[in-house]
Amino acid sequence: MPRILVVDDQKDVRAMICMVLRVNQFDVIEAGTAASGLQLFRDQAFDAVIVDIYLDDSNGLDLVSSMRALVPDVPVVAVSGMTAFDGASMSDELTRVVYLQKPFRPAELMRAVETARAAVAAKGTPSLSACAG
């Protein structure tokens, strides 16, 4: 069963994401802060990560960069309630990231996860491929 780390500071959003993933046969680990998410990422292996871009304690893109410094090819879905993802593709660590705008439907979440996993597997670059929300 594939393992996904979900990092979002909004408990209700995190719960919804986790529920959708579990229904779709993923093993899900949750974190409410960037610090706890990074520690979990260091301690365990994950097949993908879902990170909120705007976290209370950190910038989610900085978290993604830190994770990619440890595991360069980890599939990433970055979610945000904001519409601007400007400049997100500037650094190497932020390539092959699928961006998903909140609110999103369960099918859109699953499509974003599969796109991120497929892009890394194929070494593609869907950076700034914002999925409609």
Rank of each mutant, 00 (worst) to 15 (best):
V49Q: 08
R105W: 13
D47T: 01
A48M: 02
D92G: 11
A84G: 13
G32L: 07
V7Q: 04
A116I: 06
T115K: 15
E93N: 09
S66Q: 14
V49D: 09
P106G: 03
C131L: 15
N24P: 09
Q25L: 04
P2R: 04
C18V: 13
A88N: 10
T125K: 13
P106V: 07
A130N: 04
M90G: 04
G124R: 12
D12A: 06
G60S: 08
L70G: 08
M1E: 10
D12K: 15
D56P: 07
F104Y: 00
M67Q: 03
A132R: 15
L94A: 07
L55T: 07
R96K: 02
L63Y: 08
I53C: 10
S36I: 09
Q39I: 04
I29S: 12
L38F: 08
A119L: 02
R3V: 01
A122Q: 10
L40Y: 08
P2S: 14
Y54V: 00
A34N: 04
D92W: 15
T33R: 13
K11S: 14
Q44W: 12
R42P: 04
D92R: 15
M1D: 11
V113Y: 07
E93D: 09
A122R: 08
R14L: 01
D62C: 13
Y54F: 10
R42T: 00
D73G: 12
T125Q: 14
M16Q: 11
D56I: 05
D62W: 13
L94R: 02
V97E: 00
K123F: 14
N24F: 14
P126G: 09
M16V: 08
D62Q: 02
